[in-house]
Design a protein around this nucleic acid. Structure first.
Lengths: 339, 339
DNA sequence: CGTTCGAATGTGCACGGTCACAAATTGTGG
DNA sequence: CCACAATTTGTGACCGTGCACATTCGAACG
């Protein structure tokens, strides 16, 4: 006998009801764990569901109760280690909370692209949005469009504002800078990230603050684009003058490029130039030399971000938010300056 | 006067219809670009939609036409550069085709986890699945559960099978191996990826095939876990004997770890040991020394994968699929062996 | 001017759940 | 044994959209 010939349609709540000899509403109650259901009835219904391989239809559910249980992720440069790790963590956390995740990538940051991506998300009736493209411009657009759903972002300047999650970027940057100063460096460059990235700005601020606090004269930060290639080219340029003994790079990739350029110029690290990165990507420990850097716990960041959004979605007692303290990981790429 | 006080409900197709003085069906036709609509009517409806800021309800749509226009992505290690790049490309391609993307991460590869992730996707009534966790076991589970939707995977062994997209991993691995042999190496190790990864298996096969074809005696490949840390530890072990002059690593991260270990042992690259990687991640050009490796075009891979799935979803003339030819990028980490 | 036919539009229902409310069943105390 | 409340179950409407079919409109043609 044919075990179960493929029905034309997937079984619905009413099919289950019929076979279990109850009303469709009773089945619905079983689905939603309604308290007042006799155990025997519940068991019977569940058995039929099992037999029929019944799966509730998400669209129908979303339609009738008016909520999609979907959140959107708006992300840029999602192929980089940091964002990618956070996104993965967000997805896991969302799934655990019974939410679905939909992602839209930003290929560029002009308002039209941002708006298109946002539209794409809104069309799915997402209930909340996580922004992992922490560019100022994205927020401007979000404000302007007066997005109807709550949104949060990963990175922040260190202050706990309304939408932001606090990983204290400024403190991390200050720790890295202080490390260099305490080693005795006085001529330190900072290779920052792209101008309108919130994180880049925060790290730059941390650098400048610490330099100021320790009374070390600063030079203007150089604006980069996060890539190792850029770090390499900047390094080559800087080394033509060579009026510094240390560089603090805003991420590990650019630091790698810098080190490449420094070696190419026949100089030693850290003997001639010390380099500090930011992020502590898994490869950083194996660079040559192993890179001193500031560790960010990206997965944890993602989880917290998700928790924050869920707080917004399910009103209730707000969880106490605390800033994550970044940790400086000292390896072999930094040392005292050759005087 | 209040511009638009927040209605209790979002405007529906009937609200638009009423204001435009047409039936709801006409509005629906405008939405779906039905051919027989008078231009004037269409314009009027569109204007009302604009005024009302009308957004079609996705859930209702999915319910009524029985299709969700959503595809699922099942991925492992999605924070790594390769998978992450491909996912991003998939999302872009999907969005362009009017599809939504939902991602589920695999934190481990036991059948329960895989099944749970798959369940999560099926619950969303995805219409197709892209698998970026090309582990054999995942496919076993997919087969067993007799998944009701089409699915494709990124990597493959080089043969164009039903579900697979062909990036010719074997040819890539053979090219890398040949390069080493042609330089004069005869004692070559292969550091492979985890056992049940299809790509790892394909690259290993390419290595073994080429070694066989060129009549070079081979040693058993070492199974790694893709991480730089692992490469480092394997390197330390291998160097205690040092019965080789070259290593072909199955990805760039492990190659980085290997190089770290080799330098730690006081040896030169490529003077004492040559190293080849696989993937050509953006950082590979800045490793020390810059890494010879096999380039994979991950975004292109993602796009093709999506195209393949769309072919399945929208029956029509199948596009001709051609294998992508991998390219060997020779840098400074390989050279002739010191005899 | 009536007939015919295609284009443009309208009508009603189905999709698969949930919600509000009604009804049936069970238990309990006087 | 009945009145009454609490528990359990059933009924029908509704969410917003698309589909099948009916209807109207307008132009062309004999």
């Amino acid at each position: 006998m044919p075990a179960d010939l493929p029905k034309s349609r997937a079984p619905s709540i009413r099919d289950v009801a019929r076979l279990a000899g109850v009303s469709h509403q009773t089945v619905s109650r079983v689905l939603n764990n309604h308290p007042s259901i006799r155990d025997s009835t519940k068991a019977r219904v569940q058995q039929v569901m099992e037999e029929l391989q019944y799966r509730p239809n998400r669209a129908a559910r979303a339609l009738s109760r008016g909520s999609s249980r979907t959140i959107g992720v708006l992300s840029a440069s999602s192929s980089q280690y940091g964002p990618a790790s956070s996104i993965a963590a967000i997805q896991d956390a969302a799934r655990e909370a019974g939410y679905y995740v939909n992602t839209a990538n930003l290929t560029s940051v002009d308002p039209e692209t941002i708006e298109a991506a946002l539209d794409h998300l809104m069309l799915q009736s997402v209930e909340g949005i996580v922004v992992i493209a922490p560019q100022m411009r994205v927020f401007d657009v979000l404000e302007q469009l007066s997005v109807a759903v709550p949104y949060v972002t990963l990175q922040s300047t260190g202050s706990l504002n309304e939408h932001g999650l606090s990983f204290d970027q400024i403190a991390g940057a200050r720790a890295a800078t202080r490390h260099l100063i305490e080693l005795g460096h006085r001529n330190i460059y900072h290779l920052a990230g792209p101008q309108d990235w919130i994180e880049a700005e925060a790290r730059m601020r941390g650098f400048l603050d610490e330099m100021g606090a320790m009374d070390v004269p600063t030079t203007a930060p150089i604006l980069g684009d996060w890539t190792a290639d850029f770090g390499y080219h900047v390094g080559r340029e800087l080394l033509r003058v060579r009026d510094f003994t240390a560089i603090f790079s805003s991420n590990d990739q650019m630091a790698l490029g810098l080190m490449h350029a420094i070696r190419d110029a026949g100089l030693n690290i850290p003997g001639d130039v010390s380099v500090v990165g930011f992020d502590d990507i898994p490869e950083a420990a194996h660079f040559w030399p192993p890179l001193t850097t500031v560790r960010q716990d990206f997965p944890e960041l993602g989880r917290r971000c998700m928790a924050l959004l869920l707080d917004d979605l399910n009103p209730g007692p707000k969880e106490q938010r605390r800033a994550i303290i970044p940790e400086l990981v000292v390896r072999a790429s930094t040392g005292p300056p050759a005087f």
